[in-house]
Computed example of a mutant assay.
Amino acid sequence: MELQEKISVPIFTAVEREVFLQDVYPLRRPAVLRGVDLGPCVERWTVEYLGNKGGNRDVKIHVSTEAQMDFLHKNFVYKTLPFNEFVKRASEMNHTDFFLSEDESYYLRSLGEDIRKEPAELNKQFPALADDFHIPPFFEPEQFFSSVFRISSCGLQLWTHYDVMDNLLAQVTGRKRVVLYSPQDALHLYLSGDKSEVLDIDGPDLKRFPEFVKARRYECVLEPGDLLFIPALWFHNTLALQFGVGVNVFWRHLPADSYDKKDPYGNKDPVAAARALQTLERALHCLDELPAEYRDFYGRRMIQRIQKQTHCDEQNTILPSSPLTKPA
């Protein structure tokens, strides 16, 4: 979008663990990591190979006639297909067999065995493919949370959202554009939960979303074999420029008890944050007992108090305590 400030995501080449921990991770900003060894998956994961190795196990997928998938308004349907048939269809632009239309789009986000309790893990859901993918050793093994297998049709765009854990997006095959927004720009993104209501980030309705132009747009194009470091709370929106296969690796960078133990997706707000938001809702209900001018006055005082207590400059972001980080 031309009216937004546009910032290119920096690219680091041949990044090893120490370089990541010392030069990339402490900045708490997105970074493309190029030349990291992801294993033989980059060469092997063709449509034919995936179909043969993945077999005919059923997978639950998203199917949409719209290129811009909208989770808030659900402009897609959930369907089930054998994995090898899904891969075949997702790699095609037009389909002989289809659910909704000849040019429908497909998207797979792998799930745990018990989707209500278990996070996705590549070596459990797709063991025949897992050995091909090497998880970069950029965090401690006990911090690992999930490895999410993703496959999408060419042209498919996923809604803007944030996650509460740090993650690495490995673009194994195909090219993908990723647009990111800083947590500091949250007020310009018209949030509904963890998702932005602005679906079309390239041509937004500025009558509905006039503040969106103030959000700074960080952008990159991932090539096959690239990694993208996405720090927790950074909003991201992806557009598949080609049929593509990727793996998201999430890890707990906060103490384990900071996270909701009943969250298999890793996108529920940390326990303390959820409590604070609930307390805020109760406080707002208390203000409902007052006349409008009093609600306005005390609401402004609350806003001032919250800003004073919590404001953090992006340039002075402080990392949480973690075995990954050392004081400067």
Rank of each mutant, 00 (worst) to 15 (best):
L3E: 14
E5G: 01
P10E: 04
I11V: 11
F12I: 14
V15S: 09
R17T: 07
E18F: 12
E18A: 07
F20D: 01
L33V: 13
G35L: 02
P40S: 07
E43C: 00
R44F: 00
E48M: 11
Y49D: 02
G54R: 14
N56G: 11
N56Q: 14
D58W: 04
D58I: 12
I61D: 03
T65F: 03
M69V: 09
D70T: 03
L72Y: 02
H73P: 00
N75G: 02
N75W: 15
T80G: 01
N84F: 15
V87I: 07
V87A: 13
A90E: 04
E92D: 02
E92R: 11
F99P: 01
L100Q: 15
S105R: 08
Y106M: 04
Y106V: 00
Y106Q: 06
S110Q: 03
E113I: 15
D114C: 08
P119C: 08
Q125Y: 11
Q125R: 09
D132I: 03
F144K: 13
V148C: 04
S152F: 03
S152V: 01
S152C: 03
S152Y: 03
C154Q: 10
C154F: 03
G155L: 05
L156Q: 13
L156D: 01
Q157H: 05
Q157N: 08
Q157R: 09
Y162T: 02
Y162G: 04
V172N: 05
G174L: 15
G174K: 05
R175H: 10
K176G: 00
K176M: 05
V178K: 02
S182I: 05
H188I: 03
L191H: 07
S192Q: 10
D194V: 12
D194M: 14
E197L: 14
D202C: 11
G203V: 14
G203T: 14
F209A: 04
E211K: 14
K214G: 01
R217D: 00
E219G: 01
C220V: 06
E223R: 09
P224A: 09
D226K: 10
D226T: 10
D226G: 15
L228E: 04
F229T: 08
A232N: 03
W234N: 04
A240D: 03
V249N: 10
Y259L: 14
D260A: 13
K262E: 05
D263R: 04
G266H: 04
D269C: 13
V271R: 15
A272G: 07
A273D: 02
A274Y: 09
A274I: 08
T279E: 11
L284W: 01
H285L: 07
D288Q: 13
L290P: 01
Y294T: 09
D296K: 14
F297K: 12
Y298E: 08
M302Q: 08
M302G: 04
I306G: 11
K308P: 00
D313N: 12
T317A: 12
L319Y: 08
L319K: 12
P320A: 13
P323F: 05
L324P: 07
K326N: 08
K326T: 11
